[in-house]
Design a protein around this nucleic acid. Structure first.
Length: 509
RNA sequence: GCCCCCAUCGUCUAGAGGCCUAGGACGCCACCCUUUCAAGGUGGAGAUCAGGGGUUCGAAUCCCCUUGGGGGCACCA
């Protein structure tokens, strides 16, 4: 029994799948698993299937389903076969791709198992099960189903049914060792005795459970390679047993290392940001996320670091995937995000910035929304200063507000006092005012202002800093002259006046 | 408790017996560039390859043990 049946033809193009459960928003780990499946399919010229595992009706929701589908879409992971979405019909020869619509398949498979006595009805109550478990725990034994209903006679079953009890269906685990050759881990062997006894495959209410549906569906959909998280290793023998009981060929398995919290535990919502939608909302772009995720647990073997999804698919090799878990390193993600932002075409960057600019407006952090032309003009100095798209407000928000708050304490440069600052700003104002409205360019602003500083014996940096704070309200900004151009002559002069007013009276002369 | 898995700089990793006095990247530090902030460039600190035994002329790479870490043990997926 420890020998596998025929494998699905290894000579044919592989069929892989991602099978998310809509019980939460798309998790970054699920996203990576989906990506690896996608990459493997693309690399091998196989098919990437999407299946929704929605049998947990208590926890699942349509909102989560949408979040997951949108997220996968956003990442650019197009599935070759999958359920209907947003009015679009289901795609692929194995429809439906939603488990709640495949119930008859599970019922038929369950019937076969029951008829062959490879599964049996179990009438144990939750209370009985619970007390079994506590007793085992007290005796320091591993939790396991005691088999109370394993040998019920037809008469005994009938008696229970007559009492109105609805039996769950348990799969007979038997004895022996189940082994499989994992593509990333090599040979894995697990003694059936450690599976926790006969396990439930169909609930008392007739709904099927994960370890059962996954096998029925993977077999129906002719999935050849199951690429999933390492947390599924202990489920594999159970599933293999069902594949065999049903007479289905076994897929090959590849168990991916987990993505970890900084403390090396499995990445969780409690300790890390796990929802892909949160990363999207913060302004990470798909190119960076895909690039980062692909390189978390796998490497090209070369020193290439910044790669597009196509370049990655070209190089992808499941056998080179790591065995050890990897901590999610946000700093590295941000670096890659910056790399990719700088690689975007200007028009593309503007389109992607749009929602973030609008969000700033909605949050009333800016007074109006800049036009594409305004954004485009300032793009060259913005792009290398944006770690994420969401940083746009911090970086350039001062451009799109009526007035900027100026703190006199930061307005006065370190080496200057209030009087010098007032003088400097006044002098700068007339110098700037002298520059023509039409030809208000960075090239024309810098020389006269430098000359002014020199004539007055000021360090150019001090003068520039005072102007910077006066017109932006902050000490760290894009280059000053580009900033003045973006603001426009009138607004620069107006802000200088306002800043001088902030400094108050104390007329000197 | 039981079963399974894993183990190279702080982090992601290269490395598949001699090319390794262990390479790259992020982060960190310094310098350069520079009006601030970034970006970019150069350089630096940072790993007795978890520890101990073997095998071998030779081990980060193969084997064993120990230690450490993780995952799983549901009528969740």
């Amino acid at each position: 029994m420890s020998h596998s049946l025929d494998r699905i033809g290894t000579d044919r193009p592989p069929r892989v799948r991602i099978a998310p459960s809509p019980t939460g928003p798309l998790h970054i780990g699920t996203a990576r698993t989906a990506l690896y499946n996608y990459l493997y399919a693309r690399h091998m010229g196989g098919a990437f299937v999407l299946r929704l595992e929605d049998t947990d009706q208590a926890r699942g929701s349509i909102a989560y389903e949408k979040d997951i589908l949108d997220g996968l879409h956003w990442l650019g992971l197009r599935w070759d076969e999958g359920p209907e979405v947003a009015g679009e019909a289901a795609r692929g020869p194995h429809a439906p791709y939603r488990q709640m619509e495949r119930l008859p398949n599970y019922a038929a498979a369950a019937e076969r198992l029951l008829a062959a006595d490879m599964a049996y009805p179990c009438y144990c109550t939750p209370d009985e099960l619970e007390s079994d478990r506590t007793a085992q725990e007290a005796a320091k034994l591993p939790p396991r189903y005691v088999g109370r209903c394993a040998t019920l006679t037809p008469a005994e079953r009938a008696a229970r049914e007559a009492e109105g009890r609805r039996g769950a269906l348990r799969f007979r685990v038997g004895t022996g060792v189940v082994a499989f050759d994992d593509i990333v881990r090599g040979r894995v062997e697990i003694d059936v005795a450690n599976l926790g006894g006969d396990f439930v495959i169909v609930r008392g209410d007739g709904s099927p459970l994960y370890n059962f549906t996954v096998v029925v569906d993977d077999a129906d959909m002719e999935i050849s390679h199951v690429i999933r998280g390492e947390d599924h290793i202990s489920n594999t023998p159970k599933q293999l047993l069902i594949f065999r009981a049903l007479g289905y060929p076994e897929p090959r398995y590849a168990h991916l290392p987990l993505i970890l919290n900084p403390d090396r535990t499995k990445m969780s919502k409690r300790k890390s940001q796990t929802a892909l939608s949160d990363y999207i909302a913060q302004g990470f772009i798909r190119e960076a996320l895909v690039n980062y995720l692909a390189l978390l647990g796998w490497a090209t073997g070369t020193e290439e670091e910044v790669l597009s999804i196509d370049e990655i698919a070209e190089r992808f090799d499941l056998e080179a995937v790591h065995k050890g878990g990897a901590i999610f390193d946000r700093d590295r993600l941000e670096w890659l995000n910056g790399q990719w932002i700088r690689r975007l075409e200007p028009g593309d960057l503007i389109d992607r910035l749009r929602p973030f600019v609008e969000a700033e407006h909605v949050a009333r952090r800016i007074d109006w929304i800049p036009s594409d032309d305004e954004l485009r003009a300032f793009l060259p100095v913005m792009r290398e200063r944006l770690p994420t798209l969401g940083a746009i407000g911090d970086l350039a928000g001062f451009l799109w507000v009526e007035a900027v708050p100026v703190d006199p304490a930061v307005l006065v440069p370190r080496r200057w006092d209030a009087d010098t600052t007032r003088d400097g700003l006044a002098a700068a104002r007339s110098t700037i005012a002298a520059v023509g409205e039409v030809t208000f360019e960075a090239d024309e602003l810098e020389p006269p202002l430098r000359a002014l500083a020199e004539a007055r014996g000021w360090k150019a940096g001090d003068l520039f800093m005072a102007i910077r704070v006066a017109i932006t309200g902050r000490t760290a900004t894009p280059p000053l002259f580009d900033t003045m151009v973006a603001l426009g002559r009138d607004r620069v002069l107006e802000r200088l006046d306002r800043a001088m007013a902030v400094l108050g009276g104390g007329h000197r002369r």
